[in-house]
Structures are given as C-alpha cells and as structure tokens.
C-alpha cells in the first residue's frame, strides 16, 4: 500500500478541502484581514504536500505534476510583472489603475486583489515544486544504481 496508514488517509480526506478553502480565503481577503498571497500560497503547497505524504507520489503527481507546477509558477510571475507594466496605461510603474470602490468590500482595492492571486499561484506551485525536486533528488541514487544494473 502506497502512502501512510488508513487513519491518516481518512483524516486527510476530511481535512484537505478545508485546508484549500482556508488558503483561498486567506488569499482573496488579504487586503481586508491579516494574511495575503504569500501565506495563502504556502497553505496551498501545504495541502499538496499533505496529499503527497498521505497517498504517495503517484496520486499527488496526478493532481499536479512537476511540469504543471513550474508552468503555473512562471504564469504567476508573468501575471504579477504584467500588472506592474499595465500601470503605464494610466501613469507610472505599478500604478493602481483599476477603479476603487468603497472600503471593506471584496473588490475595493483595485490591483491588490489580482496581485495577491498571482503571488498565491506563484508561491504555492513553486514551494510544491521544491518539495517534488527534493523527493526526486532522493530517488537519484537508487535510479543511478538501477541504470547500472541494467548495463
């Protein structure tokens, strides 16, 4: 059986939705309450790492492979940079060009919400990618031995 015991798998099934939901809440309400894109992104990565530890590599790589993780990482970085460049449309670099409404609403602060989402995607996928790279590195020695055995 791949992964951990039956108890861990059951608890993970119950908790994983709440973890992802809380990560998305922290990200989307970053400009209203404490939190933000960085903390939300690391919570997303935490959820994926929990999936990896509980159900094994195969299951979590099916949800988010290392190729898609690095792709989402790049997309988040490009989105954040282009928000800065779009500021030139109405003035200067990183100008808050979207109309601001009354405070304490979800869409009250213009580009800050979009920047938070971009940073969340970037940080979450990249931290998960580092975890994957470390586990791939663990496999490296045994892979080398296996390839030598074939020769």
């Amino acid at each position: 059986m791949e992964g951990m015991t039956f108890i861990v798998k059951t608890i993970t099934k119950l908790l994983i939705g709440a973890i992802f939901l809380f990560a998305i809440y922290i990200t989307f309400y970053g400009h209203l309450t404490p939190g933000g894109g960085f903390a939300g992104g690391i919570m997303l990565a935490c959820g994926f790492i929990l999936l990896t530890l509980a159900f094994g590599k195969k299951m979590s790589l099916g949800k988010l492979s290392d190729f898609w993780a690095s792709l989402i990482d790049n997309l988040g970085a490009i989105t954040f940079w282009s928000i800065g460049m779009l500021g030139y449309l109405s003035g200067y670099f990183f100008m808050n060009f979207i109309e601001k409404s009354n405070p304490f609403g979800l869409f009250s602060s213009g580009t800050i919400l979009i920047s938070n989402i971009a940073i969340c995607l970037k940080v979450g996928s990249s931290i998960f990618a580092v975890f994957l790279a470390l586990t791939i590195f663990g496999r490296f020695i045994s892979d080398l031995i296996a390839s030598e055995d074939e020769d």
């Binding site: 400009h31 933000g36 940079w81 800065g84 990183f94 601001k100 580009t111 800050i112 920047s115």
Partner: peptide, 28 residues
C-alpha cells in the same frame, strides 16, 4: 488612497509594490 483596509497589504502591494516584485524575482 489604496482602498485596502489591511494597511500592510496596502503598503507592500501598492506603495512598495516594486519591492514585492523584487522578492518575487528572488523566489523565482
């Protein structure tokens, strides 16, 4: 000025967003 009721977020993603871009580049 920024519309964000969390002042920390207003500073790091509006007044000082250029710093945050540098941080993101470091992580990348």
């Amino acid at each position: 000025q920024t519309g964000a009721s969390n002042v920390v977020m207003g500073i790091i993603l509006d007044y000082r967003a250029y710093d945050t871009l540098g941080e993101a580049t470091v992580i990348f």
